[in-house]
Amino acid sequence: MNEKNQWGLGLRKGIVLLVDHNPDWQQAFAEEDARIRAAVGPIVIDLQHFGSTSIPTIRAKPILDVMLGIADFDQGPLLAPVLAGIGYEYVANAGVPNHVFGKGEPRTHLLHVVAHDGPKWHRNIRFRDRLLADAALARDYEALKDRLAVEFADNRAAYTDAKQKFIDAAVA
């Protein structure tokens, strides 16, 4: 069984489990946004809630995805000591071309540090906004995620990789 925090967030490493959307996730993001901005300071250009927990109509892994946009992508790892102070650990070789910081065990938050206004920033925002605007696309994505969660229940990296083709098509 996975322990959940006050927001219904928390998933053990490597496990894929989808849960119904929790409307409290928006408040969880708002509080984390304030916490990150206070810790990191002026290096923050923007913070966005993205990923499936930001889409109220679909099921999601109970891990809040936050994207931090900074001016210089190469400065991302230098945030490790500051972010450690608010519970984040740097996840080297996370399998994505972002600087990733994880919080909690079981994992409750993933912070993706990317170049603000760069390709990853725009791609992630575009995909989130497409899902929010297109109910049929969101349902198709949820159906894919449901199938993949069964197929890759104990392999989160493979689950993430298997969604890529759908995401690529949605943002093309």
Score class of each variant (00 low, 15 high):
P62R: 09
L64V: 12
E31H: 13
E105H: 07
D129N: 14
L148N: 01
H99S: 13
I63M: 11
R126I: 10
G85I: 13
G85E: 15
M67F: 08
L137I: 09
V40S: 11
P119W: 06
A162H: 08
W121T: 07
G118D: 05
G8L: 03
D134R: 15
I58V: 14
K163N: 06
A136K: 14
A115Q: 12
P62H: 10
Q27R: 13
D117W: 05
I36R: 08
V44T: 14
R128E: 12
K13N: 04
L18I: 00
Q75T: 02
P97S: 03
A133P: 12
L79R: 04
A28Q: 00
R128I: 10
P106Y: 00
Q27W: 04
H116I: 11
G104T: 04
P56S: 15
W7T: 02
D146K: 10
A92Q: 02
H112Q: 09
L148W: 03
L132D: 08
A135L: 11
L68S: 06
L131Y: 08
P106Q: 00
L11E: 01
Y90R: 04
A158C: 10
D168Q: 12
R123Q: 15
K165W: 02
I167K: 06
L17T: 00
L83P: 00
A38H: 12
L64T: 10
G10E: 03
N124G: 11
D20N: 02
I55F: 15
G102D: 12
A162G: 09
D33Q: 15
G51R: 02
Q75Y: 01
A92D: 02
R35D: 11
A143Y: 04
N155P: 08
D134S: 15
L68W: 07
W25R: 04
R37E: 12
A28S: 11
A143L: 09
Q48L: 12
L79E: 03
K145M: 11
D140R: 11
N155W: 08
A71D: 10
L64D: 11
A135N: 09
A80P: 05
K163P: 06
N5C: 04
W25V: 04
G69H: 05
A92G: 01
I125D: 08
R107K: 04
V100C: 14
A157Q: 14
D33P: 06
V113F: 05
N93T: 01
H49W: 14
G118S: 06
A135K: 13
P23I: 02
T160L: 06
V171T: 14
N124L: 10
G118W: 06
T57E: 14
P106C: 01
L79Y: 05
L9C: 06
H109K: 03
G102M: 10
L144E: 08
M1S: 03
G76S: 07
A60M: 10
Y159W: 11
T160F: 06
A138S: 11
I63N: 00
D154V: 07
V113P: 01
K103L: 11
W121N: 04
P119M: 07
L18Q: 00
K61S: 08
G87A: 12
K13I: 03
G8A: 04
L17N: 01
G104Q: 05
A169Q: 14
D140S: 09
D129P: 06
T57A: 15
L47P: 10
D65F: 07
A38R: 15
M1N: 00
A28E: 03
A80Y: 01
P81D: 09
A39F: 12
D129S: 07
F50M: 14
